[in-house]
Design a protein around this nucleic acid. Structure first.
Lengths: 204, 204
DNA sequence: GTCTATAATTTGATAGAC
DNA sequence: GTCTATCAAATTATAGAC
C-alpha cells in the first residue's frame, strides 16, 4: 500500500519501513515485509540503506528529531502555565494523529536498548527539556497562584494522561468496547478533559 | 542467575523465560538466553514446552491471569470512590514492584498482536472489568458529591497516571536524570500524589 | 531428565544479469 | 536502478547417546 506522495524508491522505502518498524519494533520487523509494503524488491533496501540497522537508525532518528523539538518549543516558551499545559496537550495530540505509532515506537526502543538509543538519537538537540516548565511550576507555587504540588509529579501526570491512551490503545479499545471512530472521539475529548482535569486539581 | 526458590528444571525455565520475554519481547527473546538464564540446556526448553510460541503463551497467560483479577477485585468492590482510587494506585504499585516489566509485557504484546492475545488470554475471567467503577463515578456525579466529570476520562486518567511511569521508565530516568533509587522514591511518592491529584480535581 | 551435536528454518545480505 | 537467484548467518527445533 504505497502512499501517493512517495515517488522515488527511496521515499517508498522510508514510508514502508516507518510503518513496519513502528508496528513490530526493530526485532519484529522483517525486511521482506518492508519491501512488500513499499512495493519493491528486498535487494533495493540494501542498495539504498546498506543494512537493517542503518535503515532503522535513519527512520528512528528522523522521527525523534522531528518530535521532541516541537514539545520543547512549548515547554521552553514564555506562556502562562495553564496556557502551556493546554498547548502541550493539543500539539501532542495533533502530532500523534499524524504518527499514531510514534510514542510506542520511541518508548519501545528506549525500553529495549536505552543506551544505544541515547548515544545515537538522544543528543543535545533532540532530547526533551522540561527544566523551564518545572521551574515555572515551582515559581507559581511560591507565588501562591496554584496549590502546593510537586513540579515533577505534575509533569509526569501531564505526560501520562496525554501519552498513555495512545500506547494502551488496543487495551482501551477492547476493554471499553470502542471502535476506531469512538477511540478518535475519546481522544478529541481529551484535548479539553486533560487541561480541565489538571487545572481543577491545582487551581486555588 | 537462578532464583533460590526454583528447584525443578521446569520452574527454572519459567522464571528465566519470564525475565527474558519481558525484557526483550517475544521477537527479541532468544531461546539460548533463556537457557543460559535458567542455567540449563537449550534442548530442555523444548522438552518441557515444545516450542517458543508455547513457552511464551504459558508465561503470558499466567502473568495476565494473576494480574487482572487483582485489579478487578478493587474495581468491583463496594468501597467508597475515593478509597477505591487510593487502593487501586497502591495495589498496582505493589504488584509492579514485584513484576517491574509486567505492564510493558502486556501492552507490548497487545500492540503487536492484539487479536491473538485476545483469543488466548483475554477471556471472561481475565480481562479488566471497569463497568462497576464507571457506574460508581456516574452515581457520585448525579448525587452531586463530586464535580461533573466523564467517568471514562476519569478512569483513563487514573490508569494513565498509575501505569505510564513504569512504561516510560527509561525516558523518565534519563530526562529527569534519576538513578534507580530516585526512580523508586518517585514511585513511592506517587502512592499519595496520584490519589491527592485526582481527589483535588473532582471533589466539590 | 539431561546433555551434545546437528538438522531445519528463518531471515538478512549479496552477486550478477539486465 | 531494479530484479532474480543464491548465499551466509542466526536461531529454532530435533535426534540420539547417556
Amino acid at each position: 500500500m504505497v502512499n501517493k506522495k512517495d515517488t522515488t524508491a527511496e521515499q517508498k522505502i522510508l514510508t514502508a519501513a516507518k510503518k513496519v518498524f513502528t508496528m513490530n519494533g526493530m526485532a519484529g520487523a522483517r525486511m521482506q515485509d518492508i519491501a512488500d509494503e513499499a512495493g519493491i524488491n528486498k535487494a533495493m533496501l540494501h542498495y539504498y540503506f546498506k543494512d537493517k540497522d542503518k535503515l532503522f537508525e535513519v527512520i528512528f532518528m528522523a522521527e525523534a528529531a522531528k518530535f521532541f523539538p516541537k514539545v520543547n518549543i512549548i515547554f521552553e516558551s514564555d506562556m502562562p502555565l495553564f496556557e502551556k499545559i493546554n498547548r502541550f496537550v493539543n500539539e501532542y495530540i495533533d502530532e500523534i494523529a499524524e504518527n499514531p505509532y510514534l510514542p510506542w515506537f520511541i518508548l519501545n526502543e528506549l525500553n529495549r536498548d536505552a543506551d544505544q538509543f541515547m548515544s545515537k538519537v538522544w543528543n543535545m538537540a533532540h532530547r526533551p527539556k522540561p527544566e523551564k516548565f518545572l521551574a515555572q511550576i515551582e515559581k507559581e507555587v511560591k507565588k501562591g497562584t496554584i496549590k502546593r504540588i510537586s513540579p515533577l509529579h505534575l509533569l509526569i501526570n501531564l505526560l501520562s494522561m496525554t501519552i498513555f491512551p495512545f500506547i494502551a490503545r488496543p487495551m482501551l479499545m477492547r476493554t471499553m468496547q470502542m471502535d476506531e471512530l469512538q477511540f478518535r472521539e475519546m481522544i478529541e475529548q481529551r484535548r479539553k478533559e486533560i487541561p480541565k482535569f489538571i487545572i481543577d486539581s491545582i487551581k486555588k
